[in-house]
Amino acid sequence: MAQANLPEPEQLALRILRGERAAVAGGLNLLDNKLPEARNRSARLLAALSGERALNDGHLVGVTGPPGAGKSSLVSAMIREWRLAGRTVGVLAVDPSSRPELGGGALLGDRIRIKNSSHDDGLFIRSLANRNQLGGVATEVWPMSWLMLACFDIVVIETVGVGQTEIDIAEIGDTVCYVAQPASGDTIQYLKSGIIEIPDIFVVNKSDIGAAARKTASELGRSAPRPDRRDDWDYPVCLVSATMNTGIRQLNEHFDRHRKYLVGADLLGTLRARHQSGWVVRLLKEEFGTFGLELIGGCAAVGERLGENQHRQFEEYERMRKHILSRFMSASQPSSLTKGAS
């Protein structure tokens, strides 16, 4: 049954590297699959895909902001420019799931906003439900974006973030862009919370509606800098209109400029490595709690082990996971015995 259909990871990786759409789709399905055998193959797939590229190539762009701010419309406009310039784009669009007690289903409606009507082989969109994980970002984003990075020039991750926590924005990309809704309560809230300093680029969308958008943009420009601000990056604020297609090319130039800045300052590789260990820590914590994490020596040990094995992070993660699992199993043996007796 289902397992028999799982693809051979190494072969699949070759096809993905050649940019075959069916293979990309199949790879994403595999990474989504939580059956034990699929997990093993996922680790092999990512190992076969990575190498230098995962650390130094491509551009992972995170786009976040409140619902309705126009993220999907904006991503669509950005893609139009990128495609005109001949760059290929992969998109992961994350939408919220309903609560588990309400069935945990999800409506994934971003595709059509993002996609222009014409057929385009250089664009690939996968929608994802966040499955109530990690403050809005699906855990699948990490392996999936890694896969996409292997075959697209630019990978965009759209997530809903209201700006209440740092996780939902900080670690989703090399360059993180926050899209603000003009004159919305959310934005004001966001300004006050200070998290405003995390995104590398701010966008105020819907400039076509006029004064409200300009006002929000100027408020953002004036907000106070945070201590961990990077002095050599200018944190631009862009006023754009996704629907009127104004300001988009300039915005895309900021993305390129930010990537160049990261490479120039020798930050790209370390940033990706740091983000990845951040993901691993959170994944393990979510599955096993702090106690589980301690069983392999805590956050610091995770960072160290990943650092030693930069190209095979997912495999390393699977190893740590299995390790914790086996410790849990042996720890729970006696209790299952008592269970059997009752």
């Binding site: 069935g103 289903g105 999800a106 409506l107 994934l108 409606g109 595709r111 439900a129």
Partner: peptide, 10 residues
């Protein structure tokens, strides 16, 4: 969606 599917409708 209400019974738990992840639904894509464009």
């Amino acid at each position: 969606r209400d019974v738990g599917f992840e639904v894509v409708y464009d």
